[in-house]
Amino acid sequence: MSKLQILTKGIIKENPSFVLLLGMCPTLGTTTSAINGMGMGIATMFVLVMSNIVISLVKNLIPGKVRIPAYIVIIATLVTILQLVMEAFVPALYATLGVFIPLIVVNCIILGRAEAFASKNGVGDSALDGLGIGLGFTMSLTLLGAVREMLGAGSVFGWKFVDGDGILLFVLAPGAFIALGYLLVIFNKLTSKIR
């Protein structure tokens, strides 16, 4: 696999939200607006890249049997660091994303990539893999956030293009499920045509 392939596979072919269907909780929970979705995506990407780098660095030092607990400790540490940094420098975003920031720890994408990629590959490739999957995750969260904001509030990234309220349902909980469901239908349709 070339470097470019490692980087780009996360965006379409192995897109975590649309193809692998991993990390659904933040995907649905934080995408009330495009900017929130993007914030969550970037936060996850940070942890993903860092955990991939750290784990690929220490992979030979960790005995196979305590592998998973060790990974969890590493990931939890990185998440806590992220939590503290966000609380200090972007308190508003931290407050909006709320409980979903500490819950990055149990996002299956992170542990999944650690186990499937970083524990078998070099530092450079692992970083690229993390970046690629992270980008894919960020993109799909931003897209879903943008769609929900567009339909629900008549704006994108806070920029209002329709006067009035929009279809409120899409900002509320049911809208998250429905919007993601239809996005998946469109995604499936498009990818099946390409194949």
Binding site: L21, L169, L172, A173, P174, G175, A176, F177, I178, L180, G181, Y182, L184, V185, I186, N188, K189, S192
Partner: peptide, 23 residues
């Protein structure tokens, strides 16, 4: 169901309707 809707997509949409009921 249409092929593209089978599985998770239709599950999500039904979950949306269930969530609406819970609202």
């Amino acid at each position: 169901l249409p092929k593209a809707m089978k599985g998770v997509p239709i599950a999500l949409i039904s979950a949306g309707i269930l969530a609406m009921a819970f609202m």
